[in-house]
Every structure is written in structure tokens, then in C-alpha cells.
Design a protein around this nucleic acid. Structure first.
Lengths: 357, 357
DNA sequence: TTGAAAGCGCTAACAC
DNA sequence: GTGTTAGCGCTTTCAA
């Protein structure tokens, strides 16, 4: 093997300095209660004096477990996932665990590579985004037999644990909400649905709601656009010019919606008088733009927090109440759409909907 | 030690199946050229068949090095750092390295904990944000003797490597730019400067420029505000109400500036006619708001990319041309401030300024 | 081109 | 409460 780096302080060095055996140092560090105070004090002094940092690689090999949890998100540029990461980080930091982060760029192959790398690192648990994974990824995960949490989804068959909400239901609920405000011709701008089950579910929710509610629906009311203000602006212009009868446009994320709103401002298109705009996510900015953006509030931070809690519990052997946690969502009515009007024949949507499918 | 998990596939299992020794498997995986094709093919089949994933923990212990690089950023909620992370990720992914991410929340103590944890993981290199670290963090870093990159700064004495720009110079340049547009009474809203050397340098840059250029400067022109649209809106209102003579407000980040701009919109305060607004970062949104935000473009992605490149080079034993890389910046003039007017006695600022201090 | 032996630094099990 | 022993799964050195 590599000849050892003589300058690196090992547990043995600390043990010698403290006049005890290595195992006592190991215990003093990990289970202080099992070492008598006097010994522990000597050891801690030796640790301090030498600047010893335990080699977690060696510890991981010996104990067959690590304090590393891997998480794969599609992109870090989307502040949406930043909140989820923050939720995880808060819990893992408190539990003394490290987060190994990877971004897949919405590529299933890249996700597979990341999962392999994380399993190679012998991560104690894995957190993935979405429910769609390559066959090989699933095989890896099954063989690894560690806790796996899929986030931002609740439907379908989970690999293990799942924390999120129903993207279908949210989208369906938003279209109902818009319909209750009197909108009958509603366009939909989706994120690219390729390898993105959340975007795909939102599209389905829109279509089914439009059909169920008897709205005017044409395939040409739909667009796909990559995540950016600019794309939102462009697709909005394209849509209102080619489909002038549209009464509202519902965007599958707030960034697209706000891009559209700002473009409307530039072009003097009155919002919501000329056309309504709705978003998805309730980012900070959604309540700051003028008028405020009608959107859906999602439990972004909570998804991360709960996912991490499920993992720490499972790892500690505590039972989890449920393998699937649906955190729900909330429609937020603001100024970019006309307010809902009470319709006697259609009961108002509950503020907080819990998914049924 | 822990009795081994019989279900885990080891290199030995692969070796047996392929009819070779473990070391040959090891070589086939890491240095395929050193194993004859026929043997390699047999081995790869065995790997495939067993679903073997090399145990990097064992490998790391044996080889005394890992493919993990640790990075500490203040917060993930700020999309600024997201771009830098993306820059790193792109390079590390291509180099087959893993990024271990931690967020310090602008706390030096938390940074210290993270550095210790990453060194415990035996990270091959570390990337930190800023130049301010606890004494113990510095001690850890010096003892570890691995490449360390401090980012978003170039001044002062680096621990090892440094990639960024001069926050002082940027701020100074922006105040000069505003002065060249005729503004004499310029307010400044800083991020909280506690444990944030970048914010502190920006504040100094503002003060020195105001003094050097003979602008009207009062301590009451300064405010500090935490990073959010809302705080930007609130501090702006506070500032314009308590200091009605102000002609422009320069915010130390775009989010604050845009929050202010949107609040001005709500209150019917004409921008830039009544008062100018300038930001810092050039986030996507800065060019989308109406009017567009005058700000500074920073090499966010580049900082991450270059930091990662310095590390991969150093790790491979390649020499790096310079231990400090100044990536510069660029003032972006948009509609939230009056355009600069040519002043015969003051030469126009170059578009791209390179730091001198 | 391939293999045997030795150990990387730590922890689990069991003994004292 | 503390120590001894035996590895965890891999890579390095050296030899064949």
C-alpha cells in the first residue's frame, strides 16, 4: 500500500501522548460516556495538542458505514431546489452528517453515474429528485439496500421512501382555480418534459382539468420552454401573438411566469386585464412583482427537511410512520389573474388540497 | 471489526468470477492499458454481471487519497454561488471527482466544523469562500497540506490559491461610474459585513471612492440589509424617507436593488428620474426588470471553473501559472441610473477594470 | 502482463 | 473502564 504520510497525526499518536490505547481514544471521541472523565480529559488534550482529525475513511472501512448522504438534484441554478437542499442541510448538519451533492442536469445517465459514485463512496443513504430513473440506477439502488428517498413526487411505486406532493394534482387544482375565476381559454407553458416526470405530470394535470372542466382546449395552447426569465418572455409573446383568444397563460414555474409578466410590462400588455398569468412555485419574487403573481406555494424546504429526517430516523433504527409523505400545496391568488368569483354550481376549491392520485 | 456484509460484491468476487487475482481487477478498472484486452474483457463482464461498484472508502484508505473535493459556500439560497458551484461541478464531473458541499451561513465557526469534517473525509482539496477564516481553520488547512482555493477574493495573503476579483475595486469603480453620471449624493446598502470580508471590502470601496471623488458623504447614507427582495424594499423606503436629498442608492447586491426597484414601482417613485438605483452581481433578472438594472457583472461561473481547474492541475502535478487569479469585472449601465455624461476633466472608466488593490 | 504479501487507520468483538 | 486481536476492501511494492 502507499507508505504512510509520517506527518499525518493518527489515533495512535494521540493514544501514545495520552498514555492510553487507541481503542480508548476511539471511544472517547465517539462514545464519551464510556470513558471515565479523567481519561477523556487527557485524551481531549492530546487531540487538541496534536490537531488530530479522525480519519473517517479508515473509520468508514472498519465500521462499514459512513456519515455521508448523497443527494442528486437536477440543477442548482433553480432556487427551488436550493430550498430543498437547505432543508436537508439543516437536518444533516445537526445530525453530524455530510451531504454529497450531485447535479444531473435532468439526465438519467448522469444520475446513474452520480448514484454509482455515491454508492462507491458508500453513502449511508441517497436522496433523488423525481420518480424516473434508469434501469441500472434502480438495480444499483436495490442492491445497495440503504434508505433511498425520492423527492418532489408522491405518486407511483416508490423505490423506498418518497416525500413531496402530487404534481398532477397541483396542476389540476390551478386550472380549476383559474376556471373559477372565469378563464375558459388557458394556455400552458411547461418545462421540457423529457426526463422530467414532474413537468410531465403538470402537463397531464393541465390537460385533464381542461377536459374535465369543459374548457376550450387546443394543442396549440401548449408550449415548452427551458427555465429562464428570457424564455418565459419569448414564449409568452409567441403564445399571445399566435393565439390572441387566450385569456390566461399558466406557466409550470414562476421564473417563466415572471419573465412573461415583465415582458408584458415592456409591451404595455395589461395584466390581468388583457390576459392573466399564473405560475408555479411561489418564489420570493412572486410576491414582489407588480402585480403579484398568482401561483402555487410548494413545501420546498419541508421536502428537504422531511427527507433528511426520514433518513436519520431510518439509519438510527427508528420506525417511520409512513414511507410516503405528501406535504400538499397551496394556491396563492394574487394580482396577475382576476380573483375567483363564487360559483353556486361549483364548490370552491379548498385552500389546501391533498393529493388523491 | 464489523463482520462483513456477505451480500456486498467485492473485488474478490469479481476476480474469482473472471479467474484472475484482485490486483488485476483493480488495474483493469483504473489503468485499463496495463491489462491485456482479453483479460480486461473477462473482468468487465464479471463486473457487469455482479453489479460491482468499487468501494472507494477502502480504495481511499489504501491509496491515501480520495477523489473528493470539499467546497464551503456561505449559502445556497443565493443564486450567485449557485453559478460558482456549477462551474466547479462541470470541471469536477469531467475529471471524475466528487464535490462535497457545505454551507456555512456566514459563520466562521460553522466553516471550521465543515473544514474539519471534510478533512476527516480526507478530501483531496478544499474550496472556501472569502479570505476570513478562524485561527483553527487556518491551522487545519496548513497541516493538511492539500490544495486550498479561496474564492471571490484576490487581495491579502492567500492560504494557497485564490480566484476572484477585488471587491474593493468593483465598489470603487461603481461609485466612480455613478459619479460620472452626475450623482453626488449616493447612498449605499451593504450586506451585513459581519464575518463577510467581501461585503466589508465593498463598503470600504464605496467610502473611499466617495471621499476621493469629493462626493457628499454622510454615515447616515449607509445601511445594512440581509439578502432578500423584501429587505431591499424596506431599506430603500427607509433611506429615501430619512435622506430625501439622496440622488442614487447603490446596493451591494442585485436582489436588494431589485427589491428596491419593485417597491419604487409600487410607490410611484420614478426610476431613474427621481432617484437612481444600482446593484451588484448582474443576475439574470437584472436585465429583465423595467427599467433594466445598472449593476456589475461578476465572473461567477468562471470563479468556480477556474478554482476547480487549479485544483485538478495541482493534483495531477501540473504547475499552475499563478497562485492568484483575478478574473475582473464589468460595469453594466442600464436604465435604473442616468447614463454617464462625458466629462472632459475626468477620463471615462474603462469598461473592464482590473484590480490594482 | 500478472500475482503475493503487506498494510492504510480505524472499529467490533471479546477479554480482562 | 480499558486493552488485545483481527480484520474492513482495497492499493502499493516487489517479484515472477
Amino acid at each position: 500500500m502507499a507508505k504512510r504520510d509520517e506527518t499525518q497525526v493518527r489515533m495512535e499518536d494521540v493514544a501514545k501522548l495520552a498514555g492510553v490505547s487507541v481503542i480508548t481514544v476511539s471511544r472517547a471521541l465517539r462514545q464519551p460516556g464510556k470513558v471515565v472523565e479523567q481519561t477523556r480529559t487527557k485524551i481531549m488534550q492530546a487531540v487538541e495538542q496534536t490537531g488530530y482529525i479522525p480519519n473517517l475513511v479508515a473509520g468508514g472501512l472498519a465500521s462499514q458505514r459512513t456519515n455521508v448522504v448523497g443527494a442528486v438534484i437536477p440543477t442548482i441554478t433553480n432556487s427551488i431546489f436550493a430550498d430543498t437542499i437547505r432543508g436537508m442541510s439543516d437536518v444533516f448538519a445537526a445530525a453530524g452528517m455530510q451531504l454529497l451533492l450531485g447535479t444531473s442536469g435532468y439526465s438519467l445517465l448522469r444520475e446513474e453515474e452520480l448514484v454509482a459514485a455515491m454508492l462507491g463512496q458508500r453513502a449511508s443513504a441517497l436522496i433523488l429528485t423525481g420518480a424516473t430513473h434508469s434501469k441500472r440506477t434502480r438495480a444499483y439502488l436495490e442492491r445497495a439496500r440503504i434508505p433511498v428517498v425520492e423527492t418532489w413526487v408522491v405518486d407511483q411505486r416508490p423505490i423506498d421512501l418518497r416525500v413531496g406532493f402530487s404534481n398532477f394534482d397541483v396542476s389540476y387544482a390551478m386550472v380549476r382555480h383559474l376556471a373559477s375565476s372565469g378563464y375558459r381559454r388557458i394556455g400552458f407553458v411547461s418545462a421540457p418534459v423529457k426526463a422530467n416526470d414532474r413537468a410531465e405530470a403538470r402537463l397531464r394535470g393541465y390537460r385533464e382539468a381542461a377536459r374535465d372542466l369543459g374548457l376550450t382546449y387546443k394543442r396549440s395552447y401548449e408550449r415548452q420552454a427551458a427555465f429562464s426569465f428570457r424564455h418565459g418572455a419569448e414564449v409568452f409573446v409567441d403564445l399571445v401573438e399566435s393565439e390572441p383568444a387566450l385569456e390566461a397563460v399558466y406557466f409550470a414555474n414562476d421564473i417563466l411566469a415572471i419573465g412573461a409578466l415583465l415582458e408584458a410590462q415592456r409591451r404595455g400588455i395589461a395584466i390581468p386585464d388583457h390576459i392573466g398569468i399564473a405560475g408555479f412555485d411561489d418564489v420570493d419574487l412572486a410576491s414582489e412583482v407588480n402585480p403579484g403573481l398568482t401561483t402555487v406555494r410548494l413545501p420546498r424546504y419541508e421536502i428537504g427537511r422531511v427527507a433528511a429526517e426520514l433518513i436519520t430516523k431510518t439509519l438510527m433504527g427508528d420506525p417511520v410512520p409512513s414511507k410516503i409523505v405528501d406535504l400538499g400545496f397551496q394556491i396563492i391568488q394574487r394580482g396577475t389573474t382576476r380573483p375567483p368569483r363564487p360559483e353556486p354550481d361549483a364548490p370552491k376549491l379548498p385552500k389546501r388540497a391533498r393529493a388523491s392520485r
